[in-house]
Write a protein that binds this DNA or RNA. Structure first.
Lengths: 214, 214
DNA sequence: CTGCATCATATCGTATACAATATTTGCATA
DNA sequence: TATGCAAATATTGTATACGATATGATGCAG
């Protein structure tokens, strides 16, 4: 059922799309009970919004919400990157490195959606290295919602942006350089926001089934 | 069903206590379906932990989790208090003031549990004044878990601690003094942690029904 | 008397059935 | 043709029933 989350992260399911309980249940071959549980969970993470007696829809973050998400990230992530740099072991670094490699591989294979998902997951992994489970949970939620924000507000000019910052973070972790890690993360988040077009709230929908089968 | 949350905040339900689905369903006169929904929601907020095929228990934060909660609060709340001080209107101040008065009234009436709950809610209200819905959600969760931490690790010497800090925050808001608000909040959180005894993980349970009837 | 295996009971996990609500469709009327 | 009402349909909300799993008791062997 976590496939739903992945589909959202990979932009195979787009904001505004309705997630009908019967439909999702049929696609995954489970009962509505399970689907309802999952949708509730996603709702709690802000990925879908549930309207009573109307159904669940993939959230369409407003401009204000988009800003809030990145403001929260700016509060949490630099400090978390610092803590990660203090604690990072060679194994941690290797693990993160593999993560980046996977992202590149996905990109090379033309699977931009998977690359985007892995790119977000990288930030969650940092919180894991920092050994901050509570904050990790928050960052997880923020990354999910960031994926929605990107789907809505990304302006496509300047495509390959993240690679550099993530490599720079990796270096800082490898050298256990907290100051640098914090600064890089701070700048990285500023970069991300600067590449958003936080003005219009566009719309678009597709069929659910074909998006999931893809 | 939010009564469950209130009961936890007011320390009428204590960490470790089992929340049997049938039992809760009977107490509230609803079906297990509803109870399960509620328990999953509480689980997501970290108030209860669900063990598969065993049931839901009020969470017993470990020392590490307790530290993490207050570390996260230290990252989020000072900045949020700053933002609140920048935006606070006279209406906001009046609203927060009433909150503090309610807390005092509860304390005077001997309802220490309700006072504790209101004291926590005060922090959530600050996020609301700051107009930061996303961060407000996080703080809400952190406050809830703080309530559990307090139930487990509070050392009773120095009882009336919060009053001063909350009044100081109110003053800072009234004067729209962001620097002061941020500093006071920072110190307030340090105070709170310093009054915890983050060493032993004690245990204790009571019957659910009598706790809710009380 | 103690320890372990087995069985009975209780509790949770999932599916299904029914009720409540929203949405759509069709028709009548202005 | 457009509009408003009403019935029909579809979808979600809730309760209940059944199956799976863990827990505790019981009895037997050592």
């Amino acid at each position: 059922m976590t496939q739903l989350t992945e589909a959202v992260h990979a932009h195979r399911i787009l904001p505004g799309m309705k997630l009908s309980e019967d439909e999702v249940a049929e696609v995954f071959g489970v009962s509505r009970t399970i689907v309802r549980q999952a949708l509730r969970a996603l709702s709690h993470d802000g990925l879908v919004s549930i309207e009573r007696n109307r159904g669940a829809f993939v959230s369409k973050p407003s401009v204000k919400e988009a800003r809030e998400v990145f403001e929260a990230r700016a509060l949490l992530e630099p400090q978390t990157a610092r803590a990660a740099a203090e604690r990072a072991t060679p194994e941690d670094v290797a693990h993160l490195e593999r993560h980046i490699e996977d992202e590149h591989a996905a990109l090379a294979a033309g699977d931009a959606g998977r690359a985007l998902m892995l790119s977000g997951l990288f930030h969650v992994e940092i919180a894991r290295v920092a050994d901050q489970k509570t904050i990790e949970t928050f960052i997880q939620q923020l990354i999910s919602r960031s994926s929605l924000v990107i789907a809505l507000y990304w302006q496509r000019r300047s495509a390959l942006c993240e690679s550099h910052a993530h490599h720079a973070l990796l270096d800082a972790f490898r050298q256990n350089d907290p100051d640098r890690a914090e600064e890089v993360m701070k700048g990285h988040l500023v970069d991300l926001v600067s590449q958003l077009n936080l003005r219009e709230p566009p719309t678009e929908t597709r069929s659910l089934k074909e998006a999931l089968r893809g």
